[in-house]
């Protein structure tokens, strides 16, 4: 691999992590959806670059799926959903922005420390990619944990899935079938979660998942 190709791949993957960190401190739903669209764009660029560098045409398909679904359809759908729910205004984070960012930085460091020695024998591009992908996954999880709003949890889940796609694109020889099936299963998950969000809203007049806890019958 040429030095430039490696650097550009590195740039995109690093950019994805950066956008994930940006996602963490957004406290408006609309802004959050926009950042998520940006993240999907960066992912598209990253996967497309991988397709170019690895000379793997099927990765273009993955990039196209990411562009169409993640960067256009899902953000638009989420925006409309938020508009219909009438909750554009603000979101409350459970943990403050400062600690969340610190935790995010810690997670990025942790995934570097874990991944780099483990994959010492692998291709350097795949190594960096895997480390970044793990950071994105962990950041997505962190987001799901620190948010209370169901919509932002969905965004966290989607960004987690972006990390998976990044890892899949970096690992050579990943079959197209697997990538497509992952993409579609995420879409299905998105639909199901969307329906559930509306059901929650119908029932409880809020999309705060904390409201669900009060209605559980199995508490001892």
């Amino acid at each position: 691999m040429t030095g430039l190709g490696f650097d550009i791949a590195h740039l995109f993957a690093g950019g994805l992590v950066l956008v994930s960190l940006m996602l963490l401190y957004q406290d408006r739903l609309t802004a959050m959806i926009h950042v998520f669209a940006v993240q999907a764009l960066v992912l598209t660029a990253s996967v497309a670059w991988q397709a170019w560098v690895q000379d793997a045409p099927h990765l273009y398909v993955t990039a196209a799926i990411a562009l169409v679904f993640k960067a256009i359809i899902i953000p638009v759908a989420l925006s409309r959903m938020v508009a219909r729910l009438g909750i554009q205004r603000g979101i409350e984070t459970v943990v403050g922005v400062g600690p969340t960012m610190l935790a995010g930085i810690g997670l990025v460091a942790l995934s570097m420390v874990v991944m780099l020695p483990v994959t010492a024998t692998a291709d350097p591009l795949a190594r960096e990619d895997l480390a970044f992908a793990l950071s994105v996954v962990l950041l997505g999880l962190l987001m799901m944990v620190t948010r209370r709003n169901a919509v932002s949890q969905v965004i966290g889940f989607m960004s987690l899935e972006n990390g998976l796609i990044l890892a899949a694109a970096g690992a050579k020889g990943m079959p197209l079938v697997v990538e497509i099936s992952v993409a579609f299963s995420v879409l299905i998950a998105f639909i199901v979660i969307g329906i559930v969000i509306f059901r929650i809203r119908e029932r409880f007049d809020t999309v705060d998942v904390g409201a669900l806890d009060r209605f559980r019958g199995d508490r001892t």
Binding site: V94, V209, G210, L212, D213, R216, D218
Partner: peptide, 9 residues
């Protein structure tokens, strides 16, 4: 057995 969704996450 009886945590909230967020606690499970």
């Amino acid at each position: 057995q009886t945590l909230t969704i967020r606690q499970y996450l």
